[in-house]
């Protein structure tokens, strides 16, 4: 452990080389888009004529911004709702376990195995039956929340179960109310998990193409829907500019998560 680092075996070197290739596979397409976003050409042609034109176009009069706005709004609302509702449920399951907790855990985990295309179609039918409209903006919020909540509960449950319940009991025995104990002891200790859940829920909603595709009313565009529609038309450099900003945002987000030591909490969610 504290001896000199031994030489790497050939297998280990091959694994490292493969890893470098995979990082290139991950980042070369995104970097290309970033590069093209600074190219004045409308058709992505070379040589590159450097310009901020597409960023200007993105901010003034491109149809992308309202869609980004709606996606941000859904993402933030659902993230907050997921953390609050997820924390309530996870707290109940972690601190008041009983025969009922196991079926809930299984049910939350089981929702992960259902392809979203099926749930989206079913949600449309349910919303049409309950509210008379299968496609509505309300449905975007509720549908995204329903998909992110099981993950939120499971991640928070894992976090809360790791925490020592005795700390909370100690606070209680020293006279703190249940709420105070939660607020002053449990919450700060579980904070990285909460942040990870908020980020996850935000990302799930922000990127959730399938649910939005089947639930968005005609004429309402979210970010994934706008990108979907314009990909089929052809190349549009204002998407390059938007994509570059979003990837930069993702990098910042990832560094924040990493700083907080919450990388492990984020691992295990999915979208698709």
């Amino acid at each position: 452990m504290n001896g000199r680092a031994r030489r790497r075996t050939w297998g280990e070197r091959a694994a490292l080389a493969w890893t470098v290739l995979m990082y290139a596979f991950f980042f070369v397409p995104l970097a290309t888009v970033a590069l093209m976003s600074f190219n004045r050409s409308s058709f992505g042609t070379f040589p590159i004529v450097w310009s901020l034109h597409w960023y200007h176009a993105l901010l003034h009069g491109s149809g992308l911004l309202p869609a980004v706005g709606l996606s941000l709004e859904i993402g933030v609302v659902v993230a907050v709702a997921s953390v609050v509702l997820g924390a309530m449920a996870a707290y109940a399951m972690a601190r008041h376990p009983g025969a009922w907790t196991r079926p809930f855990t299984v049910a939350f985990a089981a929702t992960i195995t259902v392809p979203w295309i099926i749930l989206s179609i079913g949600m449309n039918i349910v919303l049409a039956t309950l509210t008379g409209q299968g496609n509505s903006v309300l449905g975007l919020y509720v549908g995204d929340l329903a998909l992110s909540l099981p993950y939120a509960v499971l991640v928070l449950l894992a976090r809360l179960s790791q925490l020592d319940a005795e700390l909370e009991q100690a606070a209680r025995s020293l006279g703190a109310s249940a709420l105070t104990a939660f607020w002053r002891v449990t919450l700060p200790l579980a904070a990285p998990g909460f942040l990870a859940v908020a980020l996850m829920a935000f990302i799930v909603c922000f990127n959730n193409f399938i649910v939005q595709y089947f639930l968005a009313p005609f004429g309402v565009q979210t970010l994934p829907l706008v990108v979907y529609n314009s990909i089929r038309v052809g190349y549009s450099p204002d998407i390059d500019a938007l994509s570059t900003l979003l990837v930069a945002g993702a990098v910042v987000m990832v560094l924040v998560v990493q700083r907080l030591g919450a990388v492990r909490d984020v691992v295990g969610r999915r979208s698709g």
Binding site: F26, T32, V227, S243
Partner: peptide, 29 residues
């Protein structure tokens, strides 16, 4: 390094598809 793996994971699949098209389109880079 692990955190960097999360960047494509946090990016909309539509944008991943789009970036792939930009990279490999006819006459592209």
């Amino acid at each position: 390094w692990l955190a960097l793996v999360m960047v494509p994971f946090l990016t909309s699949s539509l944008l991943l598809i789009y970036s792939f098209i930009v990279l490999f389109q006819p006459g592209g880079p």
